[in-house]
Computed example of a mutant assay.
Amino acid sequence: MQSTTIPGRIKLARKMAGLPTQASLLVCIPGWKPSRLGNYEAGISTPGADDMLLIAEATGVSACWLMFGQGPIRPSERDLQAVRHQNLAQALDGIEADEERLAETVKRLRISRKRLREHLDNPFLPISDELARRLERLLGAKPGWLDEQHVERDPLFLSFPEEMRELMMIYSELPASQRPVLMATVRALRDSLTTA
């Protein structure tokens, strides 16, 4: 699973919501045709902001994370296992096409190929602290790297000005009940500047 892309994050969000198929997610989004969600998950088309919000609400994830891969995965908590899964999938992307790399990875992680495939495919399969630290050593990353979100290479998120990225992060990290307060404040500021 490529959860560093919008299609990958949509699939991951669906699975984390306990919706194993696209059809099960479509039940939560009335009026959508199967091809619409299928095209989004396949990367054939990119959902607009309104559709991303509908998917985020139906799956219980942060719209900012769904769109940009930034911020907490769930608005009210930092979902450690989902973050670990996302980083594992990103770090080991394409590993099965490189037999030598795959053999060295499973040897150093001290797990079977089957178990590695299960970890890559199943965002619900917990990644233990011990396995997380072994992967970090394998990658030459600092301890705790697997537990943090990394979007340094997300071109869509980075294309926005720094202030906008910061505002999106603030919005994403707020509980849903506090977001209207932020939006009201921003609108009041905008209105005061346009009337001045």
Score class of each variant (00 low, 15 high):
39 N>F: 09
27 V>S: 12
89 A>M: 11
101 R>Q: 11
152 E>R: 12
180 P>T: 07
195 T>S: 11
85 H>M: 04
122 N>E: 14
124 F>N: 15
132 A>S: 15
173 E>W: 05
53 L>W: 14
78 R>A: 13
48 G>W: 09
151 V>S: 12
111 I>E: 13
156 L>T: 14
52 M>Y: 07
156 L>I: 14
61 V>T: 06
169 M>R: 05
63 A>R: 14
86 Q>S: 10
104 E>N: 15
152 E>F: 02
158 L>E: 15
185 T>P: 01
50 D>I: 13
136 E>Y: 05
124 F>V: 03
134 R>E: 03
192 S>H: 04
40 Y>H: 10
2 Q>T: 06
55 I>S: 06
102 L>G: 07
154 D>Q: 15
196 A>V: 10
55 I>Y: 13
169 M>I: 11
98 D>M: 02
83 V>T: 13
35 S>D: 09
156 L>V: 15
164 M>E: 06
53 L>V: 15
5 T>S: 10
104 E>G: 10
22 Q>H: 02
98 D>A: 04
40 Y>T: 00
161 P>L: 01
8 G>D: 00
158 L>D: 15
94 G>Q: 09
148 E>C: 13
29 I>L: 10
101 R>A: 11
23 A>M: 01
114 K>D: 06
89 A>W: 03
165 R>F: 07
142 K>Q: 14
2 Q>G: 06
129 D>Q: 15
155 P>H: 00
27 V>D: 12
10 I>N: 02
52 M>Q: 14
187 R>Y: 05
102 L>F: 05
129 D>R: 14
182 L>M: 05
